[in-house]
Nucleic acid binder design. Structure first.
Length: 478
DNA sequence: CTGCCTTTGAAGTAA
DNA sequence: TTACTTCAAAGGCAG
């Protein structure tokens, strides 16, 4: 079972490390996996059916499934979720007493050690980190500082981040606490921007260049109103148990540092321009059409001046952005429709656990593989996701749960249906037809095999390749 | 320029 | 309840 806030002190980290190394075989697999990202990539790109993979099998789904359960329960995740929910209920009922998974806030700490060189390349030390098992990535939560941060999550994280940033600014080479932490833990590499996983990791030291410190570092003053931000009381619930009417008055704990510090969980983009670092300017521009109930005065910003990153105006939204401006050939009906859409801000869905994981790990995989194609990256990430220990996955599930909770509190009336462009059944973009192998039909693999042949496995659908791979590996083993 | 690809999970809808 | 659909992120790629 996941450690639900168990122990405390250094035991937390110790436990985590214990978990990491509990299954040595698993650990080896992960080392193998992480050190062979390129192989991974090759596997993904060329074919999932690769005999070397069957031997390596460190990152395959089947491996994750085959891996002997470290504990006796049959459905660990189910139980983990149950316990998580119980823990969440306990937490949510009152003050935030720290996450059940002490590790996860830690990975949100900005990597002040700067694994990347100024030119964006990976520093040697960072490269060494790349090969560290993912477990280690996520499990170094043992320092009291981290526990302290956990207690403050997600509010104090900002300040802590600033603190650490200040430390980093003081002496980029000196082993400040942040550095100690960063050196101790192979923080995920994020070449151009911040650690994407969560609000806590929405910082980038790139934004804290000594010559150009962000305004919020100089004083904790709202840049918009000039009013000093109230310090985040350590005992305040990070979830802002708000009534709907008060929602807009509360700064999004994830987003209030977005303009300065980088990519939020719900990045605000403008004009279809994907930028990981929405500036205050772009934010202001993009937030100008918010309805009153969601938009605090002064250009749709929260009273703190910081919008929620989940909100994206339709002009920002990919499918309607620039075409809105020059829709000369659109009908009046469409125009009016778009007008309505314009008035309605696009509130993005909260990220699920896997999405959070992807955001965190994408940069790392990209760095390892020197690959940018998301489809391939996502395949790797999907496999790594399955290779994650349940404890580690649980961190992300818990994080996603908090995201949803926060999202729910910030946008009480929001529904995922709101983002259904054409409504249910009317596809916004045509999804690929379901391939034969995507069903649970056990004979499905043979369909792709029959259709394309063994020598054209690249054309096979993923499940078919996967199943065939398992088949092959079974043959090999036998 | 737009949509697809690719992943998992959450949430919505229809039967 | 089950099955299916859409969307969330990401960036290259094809039409």
């Amino acid at each position: 079972m996941p450690q639900l806030n168990g122990g405390g002190g250094d035991d937390l980290g110790a436990n985590d490390e214990l978990i990491s190394f509990k299954d040595e075989g698993e650990q080896e697999e992960k080392i193998s996996e992480n050190s062979s990202a390129e192989r991974d990539l090759a596997d993904v790109k060329s074919s999932l059916v690769n005999e070397s993979e069957t031997n390596q099998n460190s990152s395959s789904d089947s491996e994750a499934e085959r891996r002997p359960p470290p504990r006796t329960e049959t459905s660990f995740r189910e139980k983990a979720r149950e316990s998580l929910e119980e823990a969440a209920k306990r937490q949510d009922g009152g003050l935030f007493k720290g996450p059940p998974y002490p590790g996860y806030p830690f990975i949100m700490i900005p990597d002040l050690s700067g694994p990347y060189l100024p030119n964006g390349s990976l520093s040697p030390t960072a490269r060494t980190c790349v090969n560290v098992p993912l477990d280690l990535h996520l499990t170094s939560c043992c320092s009291p500082l981290m526990q302290y941060l956990q207690m403050k999550w997600p509010l104090l994280d900002v300040q802590t981040g600033n603190l650490q940033s200040r430390q980093a600014l003081k002496d980029a080479r000196s082993p400040s606490p942040a550095h100690i932490v960063s050196n101790k833990v192979p923080v995920v590499q994020h070449p151009h921007h911040v650690h994407p996983l969560t609000p806590l990791i929405t910082y980038s030291n790139e934004h804290f260049t000594p010559g150009n410190p962000p305004p919020h570092l100089q004083a904790d003053i709202d840049p918009k109103t000039g009013i000093p931000r109230p310090p985040h009381p350590p005992d305040i619930s990070p979830y802002y148990p708000l009534s709907p009417g008060t929602v807009g008055q509360i700064p999004h704990p994830l987003g209030w540092l977005v303009p300065q510090q980088g990519q939020p969980v719900y990045p605000i983009t403008t004009g279809g321009f994907r930028h990981p670092y929405p500036t205050a300017l772009t934010v202001n521009a993009s937030m100008s059409r918010f309805p009153p109930h969601m938009v605090p005065p002064h250009h749709s910003l929260h009273t703190t001046g910081i919008p929620h990153p989940a909100i994206v105006t339709p002009t920002v939204k990919q499918e309607s952005s620039q075409s809105d401006m020059g829709s000369l050939h659109s009908s009046k009906h469409q125009d009016s429709k778009k007008e309505e859409e314009k008035k309605k801000p696009h509130i993005k869905k909260p990220l699920n656990a896997f999405m959070l994981y992807m955001k965190e790990m994408r940069a790392k995989v990209v760095a390892e593989c020197t690959l940018k194609e998301s489809a391939a990256i996502n395949q790797i990430l999907g496999r790594r996701w399955h290779a994650l220990s349940r404890e580690e996955q649980a961190k992300y599930y818990e994080l996603a749960r908090k995201e949803r909770q926060l999202h729910m509190q910030l946008y009480p009336g929001w529904s995922a249906r709101d983002n259904y462009v054409g409504g249910y059944g009317k596809k916004k973009k045509r999804k690929r037809d379901k391939q034969p192998g995507e069903t649970n039909d056990l004979s499905a693999p043979k369909k792709c095999r029959a259709r394309f042949g063994l020598d054209q496995q690249n054309n096979w659908c993923g499940p078919c390749r996967c199943k065939y791979s398992k088949e092959v590996s079974g043959i090999v083993r036998s």
